[in-house]
Design a protein around this nucleic acid. Structure first.
Lengths: 119, 119
DNA sequence: GGATGAACAGCTTGTTCATGG
DNA sequence: CCATGAACAAGCTGTTCATCC
């Protein structure tokens, strides 16, 4: 998806998809919980993803053929239903991670260059 | 302008405004020339800003009270007219640079954290 | 009532068109 | 022609509304 020509920094969507893959690798997360963890983790950096972007990231990974829904589970409390994911194609997941790494490195270079050029 | 809450990476607009300020400090650029220099400079990083974003950045700096138009100049060839800028308020410019630096550092931290977390 | 998902709205950016010398 | 600028369109993200158990 990183199409390489003319684009600026990596998009939030790709950034979150990366973390969603990581969470599924650790098979311990569902959407809201992932969001809470990310919010807590990134709050010191002034970034707090919202629930819509989390879900859009998960859905897009399904469309990409990388994830699939595993099941809906009742958990503890009476009215609570969650969605669990597993890999539909782990090779694709690894490939995607590799692509995103390239884009992360590229983005870091852009920012670093600006800091060097201007300050 | 960095409002700090919930936001992801620095925006292209702010990034370019920073470079526009730098070009005016070096008092040697007009819009298209700035664009060409940036395109050449960032092409190895897969980023090539387009002319609209350049002009929007310059205009926004005027709206911010940081730059002002200096003059229109005929340069060399018969049908070529360019716009030159100077600072309207250099203290504001320095303040803006400081704010953008904060946002650049913050953005770097986000990316670095992702690279550490996932790879 | 907590989780998921869709609909809607706003902002940011890219593409195309217009003007002027 | 070339630089500038505006208009228009597309894309991405945030906010709000709906549903389900």
């Amino acid at each position: 998806m990183p199409r390489g020509e003319g684009k600026f920094l990596i998009k939030q969507r790709a950034f979150l998809k990366l973390y969603m893959i990581r969470f599924v690798e650790e098979h311990k997360m569902y959407g809201m919980q992932a969001m809470d963890e990310l919010k807590a983790s990134f709050k010191p950096f002034g970034y707090e993803p919202n629930h819509s972007e989390i879900y859009r990231s998960l859905h897009e990974l399904i469309d990409d053929g990388i994830l699939m829904r595993q099941k809906k589970v009742q958990e503890g409390a009476k009215y609570k239903e969650i969605v669990i994911y597993q890999f539909a194609d782990y090779e694709k997941a690894k490939l995607y991670k590799k692509q995103v790494k390239t884009d992360l490195d590229r983005s870091m270079s852009l920012l670093r260059k600006a800091l060097e050029d201007v300050y």
